[in-house]
Amino acid sequence: MTRNLQVLGFGALAIDDIIYVDRPLSAGKGKVINRTQDHGGNVATALVAVAKLGGRAGFIGWLNDQPLADVSARELERHGVDISFAPRRPDARPIRSVITVGPEGDRFIAYDDDVPHGTSEALADSTLAQAQVLLIDSYAVNADMVVARARKLGLAVVADIEWAIGPATERLVSLSNHLVLPLKFAQIYSCDTDPRLILRKLWSDDRTAVVLTDGERGSYIMQTGDDVLWHVPAYKVKAVDTTGAGDCFHGAYAFALTQGKQPVACAVYATAAAAISVTGPGGRRALPDQSACLAWMAKDNAPVPRPIAPPD
């Protein structure tokens, strides 16, 4: 069938109340210098990043059955994300988050996620088969059968997992052929600290790539058909707000996959996108377009992948 969309995703939708303070979060107390509200959520922001980069993205998670009342859905549409295939239910609503951002861009997120998660098990195969990539987050444990069907249909499943709830998360990890995980979570999940050992531990015969993201220290990659472990350094930038940087990375990585790039090249592209995203406030306001990413990648001082020594 014709692939009308390139990247589909389901996961958290959020409305973020963001507070900027004048002292590091570790100070314990500081003055509020600005307040704003933005829309967020791991997969939702990643899909907005795909659309901003020029890709065709679709959200297929739960939305409210009263479209005019669903401000998060309208915000996705405003950014060019297709929501026409999303299932509806009356109790669907976004997570509410309060994000405190320090002067160096570091942040603390407090959230209330007592909302419906996942997507409908009745989602049609024809809907999934439109796309090349499925983006999921930790909440996909509520719809792992949909993830399994996506894999059988040939979609690449890119997983952004930040917390685990036992066997359900283990199944989600096993279903995802592109694990793109924060290093801090991967360290807890694998019971190891060395990125090289973690890459090996998270590998399986069904895996295409394992990517460990570590903020300003870059990312670590293992990809299929390659005996080399790779490190992609981060760009040196003055961070205004790191909210949504990981989501941007996931969206750019997924979009690069649709362009036929190998995982290390996807990580290089995503590194540029994420670096640009932290140069402005909020999780979506500084998301880059394709031309901005390519311009950053063409700089003389742009980071290049480096092989890293295997573990002893």
Rank of each mutant, 00 (worst) to 15 (best):
Pro103Asp: 09
Leu134Phe: 09
Ile109Trp: 00
Ala129Cys: 05
Asp125Met: 06
Val98Arg: 10
Asp113Leu: 00
Asp137Pro: 01
Asp137Gln: 04
Glu77Asp: 09
Ala92Asn: 04
Ser97Asn: 15
Ile83Met: 04
Arg78Asp: 13
Arg88Phe: 09
Asp112Lys: 02
Ala92Trp: 10
Gln130Thr: 14
Ser138Gly: 11
Ser138Asp: 03
Val101Pro: 11
Ala92Tyr: 10
Pro116Trp: 07
Phe85Trp: 14
Glu121Asp: 15
Ala131Met: 05
Asp91His: 11
Ala110Ile: 15
Glu121Lys: 10
Ala92Gly: 02
Ser97Trp: 01
Pro116Asp: 04
Tyr139Pro: 00
Arg89Pro: 01
Arg78Tyr: 12
Leu134His: 09
Ala86His: 03
Pro87Gln: 05
Glu104Trp: 07
His117Cys: 12
Asp82Phe: 12
Ile95Thr: 15
Pro90Cys: 07
Ile95Pro: 01
Ala86Arg: 01
Gly102Val: 05
Val133Ile: 10
Asp82Trp: 15
Pro87Leu: 06
Val133Thr: 07
Pro116Ala: 08
Arg93Ile: 00
Gly102Thr: 05
Val101Phe: 10
Val98Asn: 06
Tyr139Leu: 08
His79Asp: 12
Arg107Ser: 06
His79Leu: 10
Asp137Gly: 07
Asp137Tyr: 01
Pro94Glu: 11
Ser126Cys: 02
Ser97Thr: 09
Asp112Gly: 04
Gly80Glu: 11
Leu76Gly: 04
Ala122Thr: 14
Ala124Ile: 01
Pro116Lys: 10
Arg107Val: 06
Leu135Ala: 08
Gln132Gly: 14
Ile136Arg: 03
Ala124Trp: 01
Gln130Cys: 05
Leu135Glu: 08
Val81Phe: 00
Arg88Pro: 06
Ser84Trp: 03
Asp106Ile: 03
Val101Leu: 08
Ile83Trp: 02
Asp82Asn: 14
Pro90Arg: 10
Arg78Val: 06
Asp125Leu: 09
Val115Cys: 10
Glu104Lys: 13
Thr127Val: 14
Gly80Cys: 05
Arg93Thr: 07
Ser138Asn: 08
Arg88Gly: 10
Asp91Gly: 03
Val101Lys: 11
Phe108Thr: 12
Pro103Thr: 15
His79Tyr: 14
Gly105His: 10
His79Arg: 13
Ala86Val: 03
Pro94Arg: 02
Gln132Cys: 06
Asp114His: 15
Pro90Trp: 08
Ile109Tyr: 00
Asp113Gln: 14
Leu134Gly: 05
Pro103Met: 05
